[in-house]
């Protein structure tokens, strides 16, 4: 049988994050963001084995960063050696609007729980403190980046930007770019799904209950450790995969 290796990844234009952080730190007006950017970010040449990661997952009231708001945030620090789930953090926040029945079904957070929860603004200092200095790992980067950016614009009038590693993108680069993928698509067989749960199955990771921000963050951390163990050299510079 013919074997088609995954297509080599094309170099893409990612910003030089340490420089971005220096510039942003100088430009930021909010002390929160000055503090966050002031913490800096690792050099792009740092090998993966030396990087502190933070898996982040956000559950929201819907899919539109402009209209919908954050309901809960899960964060799990980890390295290639260990996932520090014992130091994980989880916040439920009051989105300041009623929850649609649909979203309640998805993330299981009820209205009464929300009413007793703080506003996002109150947890942002904590969240930024946890994020500072770590490279963020998410599954599907748009959600976390866009919602955080929108939330900060709304509460302090300034957005945020940070490097992320996207486990979904990593899966896609191996499965959606390969010739094999196109062939199978063409013949309508064996569709590769790059959703979190399906990606995890490929690395024989167990099934977790989906749509809980903390569990999803843990699931993402495990997925990235698995991807790194199977696909990356621990000495590979982090800039190869951050976006």
């Amino acid at each position: 049988m013919l074997y088609f290796p995954p297509e080599k990844k094309k170099p893409r234009a990612t910003p030089c994050w340490p420089d971005v952080f220096v510039r942003r730190a100088a430009e930021a007006r909010s002390p929160l963001l000055q503090y966050y950017y002031g913490g800096g970010v690792v050099d792009g040449d740092t090998p993966l084995s030396k990087v502190l990661f933070l898996a982040l997952d956000i559950e929201t009231t819907g899919l539109h960063p402009g209209r919908d708001a954050i309901v809960s945030i899960g964060a799990v620090p980890f390295t290639l050696e260990r996932i520090f789930s014992s130091r994980s953090r989880y916040w439920v926040v009051n989105p300041g609007r009623p929850l649609t029945p649909d979203s309640v079904v998805i993330h299981g957070i009820t209205h009464s729980r929300i009413l007793n929860s703080p506003d996002l603004m109150e947890v942002i200092p904590d969240l930024l403190a946890v994020m500072a200095g770590a490279v963020i790992v998410v599954h599907c980067r748009q959600v976390e980046r866009l919602f955080l950016d929108a939330a900060l614009r709304k509460s302090i009038g300034e957005g945020i930007d940070f490097p992320v590693i996207d486990t979904m993108e990593i899966e896609a680069s191996y499965f959606r770019r390969g010739v094999r993928y196109w062939l199978s698509q063409f013949f309508g067989l064996n569709r590769y799904s790059i959703r979190l749960a399906d990606s995890r199955t490929r690395y024989h990771l167990p099934q977790y209950r989906p749509h809980h921000a903390l569990t999803d963050a843990l699931a993402t951390a495990e997925l990235f450790q698995a991807q790194a163990a199977c696909r990356f050299d621990p000495d590979m510079p982090v800039k190869e995969i951050w976006l």
Binding site: F78, E81, I83, S86, L205, A229
Partner: peptide, 13 residues
């Protein structure tokens, strides 16, 4: 459970 950490090992490692 609150004190547990996690690690993944590839087959053969």
């Amino acid at each position: 459970a609150a004190r547990v950490d996690v690690r993944y090992f590839k087959a053969g490692s």
